[in-house]
Simulated assay, not measured.
Amino acid sequence: MSRPTNSLIHQSSAAAMGATALNADGFGVGWYSEGDPVPALFRSVQPAWADTNLGELARHIRSPLFLAHVRATTGTPVQQTNCHPFRCGHWLWAHNGGIREFATVRRDLFFAVDPALFPGIAGSTDSELMFYLALTFGLEQDPVSAVERMVGFVEDVGKAHGVQWPIQMTVVTTDGKRLWAFRYSSEGQSRTLFYTALVSTVRQLHPDVPLLRQLSEETRLVVSEPLSDLPGVWTEVPESSYGIVQPGQDVLAAFHPKQP
């Protein structure tokens, strides 16, 4: 998080590929510990570069799965409950992008959340609402179908209110065992998303990088922009696609919104 040339902490002040170079409206880290299915969360409204506790945690915490995010608000308040990642049970969720004209459509979207899940919504962001809509549409049972239904619903509501391009997103969600990443936007010009090549391939390309010898064959990074400029390491997720990082064979396939 802090060591690469283009670390997430660096991106909080100088992102190269985001909608804005400055992501100073808070940050968050979620991670899983052995024997506990509920992930830990550390979130702050401080800019990531200014929080000394973040460096301490990053240096000492060890986990098989991290999810981290630096925030640039699209209009909702700068407060801890609006910082990503969001958590519900053993699930984590982070999002880049936005629901366009959110103030216009939010009432219709909120009413679609399962009443049993609704009390868990703590903040006011479109990102957290998207998470709870995906949970409502079956994230626990079938994550891909749930996110496709969530996006289809948001687009339907947006278009009913005259919004031309209702949704812009890259989303990453995980249950602690697998990780799902989605890249989609209504206009087909989505935020960037990249993943790393197989560790064995990267080692062959860069045998002189000591860090690569410490990684397992199952290691993958999914990022909004590359953390380094090492050739052959980073592959862009195609437009309107999703990926699944899991033990064994990973998945990359086309993403299609569905009518919920």
Rank of each mutant, 00 (worst) to 15 (best):
S145Y: 00
V105K: 02
S190L: 04
A72I: 02
S44R: 12
A58T: 07
Q189H: 13
V157S: 06
P257W: 00
L215E: 13
F111H: 14
F255W: 05
V70D: 13
S124V: 03
V29M: 14
D126C: 09
S216A: 12
P64N: 08
G26Y: 05
P231E: 12
W93Y: 13
R59T: 12
V172D: 03
V29N: 03
S127I: 01
P47N: 13
P260Y: 05
V222I: 15
D175L: 02
Q259C: 06
P226N: 10
P85I: 09
Q249I: 05
Q164C: 06
P119Y: 05
R178K: 14
Q189D: 15
E155A: 00
M17R: 11
I9F: 03
A40W: 00
L252E: 14
F66D: 07
R191F: 04
P4F: 00
L54H: 06
T76F: 03
I61M: 04
R59S: 15
S33N: 12
P166I: 02
Q259D: 14
L109S: 06
D36R: 03
N82I: 02
H84C: 07
D250L: 00
G98K: 10
P4A: 03
S7N: 10
R203S: 08
W49N: 13
V147C: 05
G120L: 10
N23D: 12
A94I: 00
L212M: 05
C83D: 12
S145P: 01
R106S: 14
G243Q: 10
A50C: 06
E239P: 00
S44Y: 00
Q168F: 10
G138R: 04
A19Q: 13
F182W: 08
S63T: 15
D142I: 01
A160H: 10
V105P: 10
L117N: 02
V157Q: 09
L67P: 06
E128Y: 00
G30P: 06
G97L: 04
W180N: 10
G18P: 06
E239R: 07
V223F: 04
V209W: 03
E140M: 08
L230Q: 08
W234D: 13
D250S: 12
F194G: 07
A112W: 01
W180E: 10
V113Y: 02
E101L: 07
A94C: 11
D250T: 06
V237H: 04
R183Q: 13
F118S: 14
F194A: 10
F111I: 07
G152K: 01
A58K: 00
G138I: 02
S63G: 09
P257Q: 04
F111Q: 15
F110V: 15
R213Y: 12
E236L: 01
T174V: 03
A103R: 14
L54K: 07
Y242C: 10
R203K: 14
A146F: 01
Q249M: 09
Q79W: 02
C88G: 02
V113M: 03
A160S: 14
G123V: 04
I244M: 12
L139N: 03
L8D: 06
Q214N: 11
F137S: 07
G138Y: 04
T219S: 14
R59C: 11
P207Q: 06
G98I: 01
L193N: 08
G75W: 02
A253G: 06
V233R: 03
W234Y: 15
L230D: 11
K177Y: 10
S127E: 09
R100M: 09
M150Q: 08
H84S: 08
I244H: 06
V144M: 09
G152V: 02
